[in-house]
Amino acid sequence: MKSIPVLGTLALLACGNLAAQASEPVEWITDPAELAARGFDPDGPPIQRLIIEPDTRPLAERLAERELIETSVDVGGGNVRWASVQATDFMLLGDEAAYTTQGNFNFSCLAGAPTNLFADAPIHFRDDRRLRFFDVWTHDSSASGDVEVLLYRVCQPAFTAEAPVVTELASRSSTGSGGNQFSFVSIPGMVHSQNSICSYWVRTRFPNCTAGIDLKVLKARVVWD
């Protein structure tokens, strides 16, 4: 049904509010250091972030819930509920920076002059779907830091020019230095994809590029209802 996103869009347009839907728990990030840490202009406009309540349940219980939700899918994608990004889907945020996929469809930044710690990959969802989970696969064998993977949304009016409004929807980070890792987070509230006004992307944030292939982003995936 298109009516719901259309009306939602119109409501947002009418209110002049592209920032968030009413059911989205958000907070503003205004600290320049926090903005810079995410690859944003520290002197630029603030961005929003969904407030994610920590899920303290055991991982096994959370995974069991995920598997229960994942029912069979239709042929050809009618019921496909995920989208993923990987490897050269990512593009570093500066042309002089260096990366490698090792030929194995992962993504790492490399030390060089100059480096860039951030890379973005556009991701597309079916319209008007509630975004539920953000899944991240990483490889971390570096003692010098962790690699973070974040999901962002940028919204602008459907048919006019206006400053974009950015929202951080989810983030995951590798931990320790134990090698391959998987983690996921539930996207709180009722965050629905709105393709007429919003675009989505996944951002990687490396702590440094000297770690090289000790820090890899293997894949990121968004699952929706």
Partner: peptide, 26 residues
């Protein structure tokens, strides 16, 4: 239906197409 991609989805015609993405909007 609408499908969009952020600016950083670009394919550069050659490496000499220099770019930055520093404002956080991709």
């Amino acid at each position: 239906d609408f499908r969009s991609q952020v600016g950083m989805g670009a394919r550069r015609a050659a490496p000499s197409a220099r770019y930055r993405s520093s404002d956080g909007t991709s």
